[in-house]
């Protein structure tokens, strides 16, 4: 059953991605990107990676997209002249196909789930959440410690770069 729900979710996410690329307003595009990233987090959940899923929600959809939406709102970007992709005649048909595909595949998944033996339903996984969390953390700090420390230097460079880009000409006292 989860296989069908997974494919259904993929169809929904492709629909959101196409909506994002072909949206008329920049803010709609940003909102669809947020929905796509949240959906990718749900895909990670279905692949038994809850830590990666919640970190995806926290960082990508919760911090990076906040920055994007800030910029869109600060610039008060207007609706652009409709580009060829947002007025393409096949766009609505493709979106309808993907949305209908999502609903149809969900329905198929529910039907299959109601018919099959309730064995996998309540939380039997090959790797439990806690074991993989511990392994991930141990690996991060033993095998990949150099990359980890390098990451802090990269973050420092980002900080300095952002300040240099946006520095005011006069000091504010």
């Amino acid at each position: 059953m989860f296989g069908w729900i997974y494919i259904a979710l993929c169809s929904l996410l492709v629909m959101f991605a196409i909506l994002m690329v072909s949206a008329r307003r920049p803010i709609s595009s940003a909102v669809f990107l947020v929905l796509t990233l949240i959906g990718i987090g749900v895909l990670y959940l279905m692949m038994n990676a809850p830590l990666v899923a919640t970190l995806q929600w926290l960082v990508y959809a919760g911090a990076i997209m906040v920055l994007f939406v800030f910029v869109v709102m600060l610039f008060q970007l207007r609706e652009l002249n409709p580009t060829s992709i947002s007025t393409h005649p096949g766009r609505f048909a493709l979106l309808l196909l993907l949305g209908g595909g999502f609903l149809g595949l969900c329905l198929k998944g529910v039907i299959v789930g109601l018919q099959e033996q309730p064995v996998i339903m309540m939380g039997q996984t090959l790797v439990t959440g806690e074991a993989s969390l511990k392994d991930f953390s141990l690996l991060l700090f033993s095998k990949h410690v150099f990359a980890f420390e390098l990451l802090s230097v990269v973050l420092l460079a980002t900080l300095v770069g952002a300040i240099l880009l946006a520095r005011r000409k006069q000091r504010v006292s």
């Binding site: 970190l55 926290l58 960082v59 911090a63 920055l67 910029v71 600060l74 700090f141 990451l151 900080l159």
Partner: peptide, 26 residues
């Protein structure tokens, strides 16, 4: 531009915070 700077600062420090979580776990 200060709002943009706050958002960038939040992003960088949020990335630091998420590395504190696996450390705290083990």
């Amino acid at each position: 531009i200060r709002f943009y700077l706050v958002a960038i600062l939040f992003l960088v420090f949020d990335l630091e915070v998420i590395f504190l979580f696996p450390f705290a776990y083990i």
